[in-house]
């Protein structure tokens, strides 16, 4: 799961200190799933990743970073 990093925590704070629960409600996931995504323990589906990016008004590549075989 370490191949994909994300900026979700930083983006939440930049968007009015959005809580994980608030983000979860916007994207139809549970707060625990959002937490797992932020910690890099769970990689969201493509659809969920797009929904997260849409909440912050950012392109996918700005929110998620794929490190590949690094």
């Amino acid at each position: 799961m370490g191949a994909i990093r994300n900026e979700i925590r930083r983006l939440r704070f930049e968007h009015g200190e959005m809580t994980q629960q608030e983000l979860a409600e916007k994207i139809n996931l549970t707060r625990q799933t959002v937490n797992a995504i932020e910690l890099g323990k769970y990689s969201p589906s493509l659809e969920a990743a797009f929904r997260i990016s849409a909440v912050f008004g950012k392109p996918l590549e700005s929110v998620f970073h794929y490190s590949g075989d690094e």
Binding site: N28, L29, T30, Q32, T33, A36, Y42, P44, S45, A48
Partner: peptide
């Protein structure tokens, strides 16, 4: 939480 459907991770 109880009323919410299972999400993809669940």
């Amino acid at each position: 939480e109880a009323k919410a459907p299972r999400d993809e991770r669940d």
